[in-house]
Design a protein around this nucleic acid. Structure first.
Length: 366
DNA sequence: AAACGCCGCAACCGCCGAGGT
DNA sequence: AACCTCGGCGGTTGCGGCGTT
């Protein structure tokens, strides 16, 4: 284990510690306490630099270090704290007795981060990111793999623009609103803030397209504001909804795989508002494990009714800061500590309820 | 069983801020 | 104010173990 000595400056040893060195260090610290780390190696008879001694002690030899697998409680705490603190490993470690910042950092990079990515969750922002799933390439791959040209791919050239993640998020949110509470949607569409946000997002999209009633994409329109009155945007949302329904059906019919589940869009929005720990470790015993989290009948409603968010800001959906992390003593259901990594992964996947095809290489995101 | 590639993690590196002179 | 020392922190490295072919 560990890095081999890369140099031997000042005659000091580097690389993995031997049991003899460990014993010397432990014995010395037990007798004298570390004191000045720079002087410690000389006093302890070690051919190491003080920094190396300090790291060895704090990360490995300290008697109060808890070793072994992280429990679910610990993992959940790490995720929650990371959503608040970011890569402040020492601060996170301070909340996890017996764990070192180095250990937590390693665990994050080798386990949690990858798991989040596999489930389409941005490990930096802790929010779902459809672009991590690279839907456009999934779709293209699926379509191109069809031996018969049941669908003219050129007709779908516009999907690259449609599958812009920001636009997807925006549309999915509108669909959620529309399905769960159309009146609320209208109410919030009437707030100019939303329209402005949509306008900004669309203007940032260089591949703006116009949707017609036949779910086909045509040439970009120069004046996107024409899309932004309420009626027309609802129409656009309807068209996109139909398109995804078509795509899903197409996918099911031709590849036996539901690559774009019909509930994906709604779940993406719902998950966005849910604490990440709930996304990852929702109780498998919940009445409907495919319906994520929200204890209220409508997660959307809970967001909209949140006293701190009287004005539903579309930017919060788009840029996705984690605004209200759950308390550390969250009452979410833990899996028992003896669960395997596969079981954790299984719960994560089943919870998000969509499949990531084998062909999708997530290594690019790591 | 040998070769290969991936993964986990201990340890190193470089930077930064606090405190002392 | 400038410099130095020290400890702390986050990022990165690369060996060794393990699984796969």
């Amino acid at each position: 284990m560990g890095r081999a000595p890369c140099c031997d400056k000042n005659g000091l040893k580097k690389g993995p510690w031997t049991p003899e060195e460990d014993h010397k260090l432990i014995t010395y610290i037990q007798l004298h306490s570390p004191g000045n780390w720079r002087n410690l190696p000389k006093n302890a008879g070690l051919q190491r630099c003080g920094k190396s001694c300090r790291l060895r002690w704090t990360n490995y030899l300290r008697p109060d270090i808890k070793r072994g697998r992280f429990s679910f409680e610990e993992e959940e705490t790490i995720i929650q704290l990371h959503s608040i603190l970011g890569n402040k490993w020492s601060a996170i470690a301070a909340r996890l007795p017996g764990r070192t910042d180095n250990e937590i950092k390693n665990y994050w990079n080798t386990h949690i981060r990858k798991r989040l990515l596999r489930n389409g969750i941005d490990p930096v922002t802790h929010t779902p990111r459809l672009d991590l799933l690279d839907l456009s390439s999934i779709l293209r791959s699926t379509l191109c793999n069809q031996s018969s040209s049941l669908l003219n791919v050129s007709n779908l050239l516009g999907t690259q623009a449609l599958l812009n993640p920001e636009l997807l998020r925006m549309v999915s949110t509108l669909l959620s609103l529309k399905q769960e509470n159309p009146e609320t949607l209208l109410q919030y569409l009437q707030q100019n803030q939303l329209c402005n946000s949509i306008d900004t997002q669309l203007q940032n999209n260089q591949n703006i397209m116009q949707l017609n009633d036949h779910h086909q994409f045509q040439t970009p329109v120069s004046d996107v504001s024409s899309l932004l009155n309420q009626t027309q945007f609802m129409q656009a949302a309807n068209n996109v909804e139909g398109l995804f329904s078509d795509m899903t059906n197409f996918s099911c019919q031709n590849s036996q795989e539901n690559l774009i589940p019909s509930n994906l869009m709604n779940q993406a929005f719902v998950s966005q508002q849910a604490p990440i720990n709930q996304v990852l470790y929702s109780s498998p015993s919940s009445s409907n494990p495919t319906v994520p989290v929200p204890s209220e009948s409508s997660s959307l409603q809970s967001v909209l009714n949140n006293g701190n968010q009287n004005n539903f800001n579309f930017d919060s959906v788009i840029s996705t800061p984690l605004s209200s992390p759950t308390p550390l003593n969250s009452s979410s259901t833990y899996l028992n500590n003896s669960s395997t990594e596969d079981e954790r992964e299984s719960y994560c996947s089943s919870f998000l309820k969509f499949e990531i095809p084998e062909s999708l290489d997530i290594s690019d995101f790591m």
